[in-house]
């Protein structure tokens, strides 16, 4: 079995006025979830459409599930693709069930599977109403149902959780995890950063058509070397400083939200380098007055901001 699901080699896409994508080399393995992040116009949708074969690369070569997506026979392999476009829309005058039956037939699956998927995305009660009466969330769930048709081997999802309620979002990630363990490669593009963090293996950050970072979250964290944020309750600033023996310098202290940062305040927050985490825990945990201790690792959002500002600074 071919382990590489998507392979891009020096792929570049330019229009007369803009470079939508600068030369990009990357690959996604089977059973891997890649998170794709970037501003509007960063090239995310362009990249997805290139992989799907909707757009033709200006230079470079693409292989999706082992075939060139623009070849004459490419449509035969698309049975294993699942795609959710941004702002998905359907035949408004048809019912959800009719839409999904039609799309299922085109992918070579029977109506029973379509009906089962309607149940899974919780659309069964509304399945026989016309799509034009659907809310944004219902359209999105119908869009997910069509992307999940026929156990895809390559799933490309543009903003999959927009408009979904928390329960539906949870269900969605469960399905993604299940498909992933079945060997499906997933490319997930999302603005909603906090939810997606636990479900991706690697992240790629794009800006203005350039790849700013690509790797597992742990590696990106390490490379960015962002500080951790420690919140302490029950100790004064002086207490902490004496315990930490010079690990904290003055600029590390953060404004405490509740009662200012006066000397005697019992809620304090400070930044520290990530490698000091265990020392901090060891030193502060032994303190009797300690009421609470919370360590916040840099989130995906912080990383995203870091790489973007890093890029912008470099550009200046």
């Amino acid at each position: 079995m071919n382990d590489i699901a998507v392979d891009l080699n020096q792929v570049c896409k330019y229009y007369p006025n803009v470079n939508a994508l600068h030369p990009l080399t990357m690959s996604v393995k089977s059973g891997e979830v890649l998170g794709l992040f970037g501003h509007n116009g960063a090239g995310k949708s362009t990249l997805m459409k290139l992989i799907l074969g909707i757009l033709k690369p200006s230079t470079g070569s693409i292989s999706a599930l082992g075939h060139c997506p623009r070849s004459n026979q490419a449509h035969n392999y698309r049975t294993q693709f699942g795609y959710l476009p941004e702002n998905v829309s359907f035949y408004e005058h048809l019912s959800g069930r009719e839409v999904l039956h039609y799309l299922a037939k085109l992918k070579g699956h029977n109506k029973a599977q379509a009906d089962k998927l309607l149940e899974e995305v919780d659309l069964a009660p509304a399945a026989d109403r016309a799509v034009k009466t659907y809310s944004k969330g219902m359209r999105q769930r119908l869009g997910l149902a069509q992307a999940f048709l026929g156990e895809p081997k390559l799933l490309i999802l543009d903003e999959p959780t927009v408009g979904l309620d928390p329960v539906a979002t949870q269900d969605f990630y469960l399905t993604v995890d299940r498909l992933k363990s079945g060997g499906c490669a997933v490319i997930l593009c999302s603005h909603v950063l906090p939810g997606v963090e636990h479900h991706i293996d690697r992240a790629m950050i794009l800006s203005k058509g350039r790849k700013l970072a690509l790797g597992p979250l742990a590696e990106l964290r390490k490379a960015a070397n962002l500080p951790i944020e420690v919140s302490v309750s029950g100790l004064t600033r002086a207490d902490i400083e004496s315990k930490m023996k010079g690990l904290i310098s003055e600029p590390d202290w953060l404004q405490s939200s509740s009662e200012g940062s006066s000397e005697g305040a019992l809620h304090n927050r400070f930044h520290s380098a990530a490698e000091n985490k265990l020392d901090i825990l060891r030193n502060l945990a032994s303190e009797e007055n300690l009421q609470d201790l919370h360590i916040k690792l840099p989130s995906l959002e912080d990383l995203y901001r870091y790489y973007l500002s890093d890029f912008n600074n470099a550009a200046v």
Binding site: L52, G53, I54, N72, E92, L106
Partner: peptide, 13 residues
């Protein structure tokens, strides 16, 4: 409507 984009990703020439 946007459905043509979707159809182009289906196994349909």
């Amino acid at each position: 409507q946007g459905t043509l984009l979707l159809l182009m990703t289906y196994p349909l020439s």
